[in-house]
Design a protein around this nucleic acid. Structure first.
Lengths: 227, 227
DNA sequence: AATAGAACATGACAATTATCATCTTAATAA
DNA sequence: TTATTAAGATGATAATTGTCATGTTCTATT
């Protein structure tokens, strides 16, 4: 059996609908490579012509503003796909994808995906559902941006990061984000983000272990977040 | 030939991929009805179990916040579909859909849509592309919320409304939104929205004709919006 | 036409958040 | 190790935006 069969992406993403035969085709058409922390998988405006499977590492989808701030739209972790939207829409990428932690990815060319669309209905449906999931999240985040304060959004984001990525052995968040990146997720200035982290630290909601963050009072954070 | 064949929704939405036979099935399974301005098609949390075709009128998808403010996520006009996301995801509606102008809609039950998914690949692809389009817009609006000022977002929104809905014979915007709704789109307080409209009026960017809005200097508005 | 209620408008003020400056600490390269 | 740069931290201040109060103008209904 080839490697794709046991791959985490195959287990977690839309690709789980593919049968043995299709998986073999997939394995033959894919290309695997590594992306170092800070490097880009693709940049806004590029035509990607395929989909990226994230085997390992963490990526961010973001857009640079005129004033130089990077707004992070989504984090992508191992097991997920990247670049479906622009591939499906036949458009250049709307966002830039960069590695936040060293990544290992496979690239699947568009032609192959289209074949799967045509031959495997469940695959199409899975893909559609995954885009719908992204849409729902995006809408809810949009609403949160307007209806919640920066403090609430920070609390919410810390909880999300905890849920999605888990914690290290020292109980700190596993994803290593700079304060600037964290600010880019919640949509605020880096200084504001740092200030609030200090506040949270002082009021014992979190603990700052060097640059890492440990959630100390999840209940209080939750209460703060959805008020 | 039955009515669906000539329907504007059939011409503009994903439904355009359906063949004659499918259109007949569609016509037999649909139910048509009217929704008056202010009334809801469905509310957040409801299970819709199908898709709405907007034959006429304008609708808004929105979410009510704790403090009573209504954040508008999307406007829907004739020719578009409504409720695909929660149908595809098998989830209750995430947003409330209300009529902003008297609407005429057809409801297509989920079972029928699923049949089309299975029998017609192009239909699936169209639907997927339309969700992708929504996702892209949502992401871009999310970014705009963070990276642009309220003034810029108002300018941007006025231009969008002009593009999407056009103008009446007196050159005012065709969509009739209250100031409160407009504020709900750009994500600000109603008073702030009103104040900025006054400012735009004073600086000759727009003209306030009663409650209606006439764009007077599109170029300046554009410059303001994407700075 | 009179009245009530909604929508619009504007001022005064407060709260939130951004910006700029400066400093400390940590990471990286020579 | 030391130098250099990046990341983190904090204060002071300004700008933006929200909130509350109040008044005006529509609009609909009797």
């Amino acid at each position: 059996m080839n490697k794709c069969d046991q791959c985490i992406v195959r287990q977690l993403s839309s690709l789980k609908a593919l049968n043995k035969e299709e998986i073999i085709k997939l394995a033959n058409s894919k290309t695997t490579y590594k992306v170092k922390k800070g490097e880009a998988l693709f940049e806004e405006g590029e035509v990607t012509n395929g989909v990226f499977c994230v085997k390992d590492g963490v990526g961010k989808l973001s857009k640079l503003s005129a004033n130089g701030k990077d707004q992070i739209v989504k984090l992508v972790k191992s097991g997920e796909l990247l670049g479906q939207r622009s591939m499906i829409s036949n458009e250049p990428a709307n966002l830039t994808a960069k590695a936040i932690a060293d990544m290992e990815v496979c690239f699947i060319p568009k032609t192959e995906i289209i074949n799967f669309f045509n031959s495997n209905n469940q695959f199409s449906l899975n893909m559609m559902q995954s885009v719908c999931e992204d849409l729902k999240e995006s809408e809810n985040e949009k609403i949160a941006l307007v209806q919640k304060t920066v403090k609430q959004r920070l609390a919410e984001t810390l909880l999300h990061l905890h849920d999605e990525f888990g914690e290290d052995t020292d109980k700190t968040l596993k994803v290593q984000l700079t304060r600037e990146e964290l600010a880019g997720i919640i949509g605020t200035a880096t200084e504001s983000c740092i200030r609030l982290l200090s506040d949270f630290n002082k009021s014992n909601l979190i603990e700052l272990v060097g640059k890492k963050i440990k959630l100390k009072d999840v209940r209080a954070l939750k209460k703060l977040a959805d008020n």
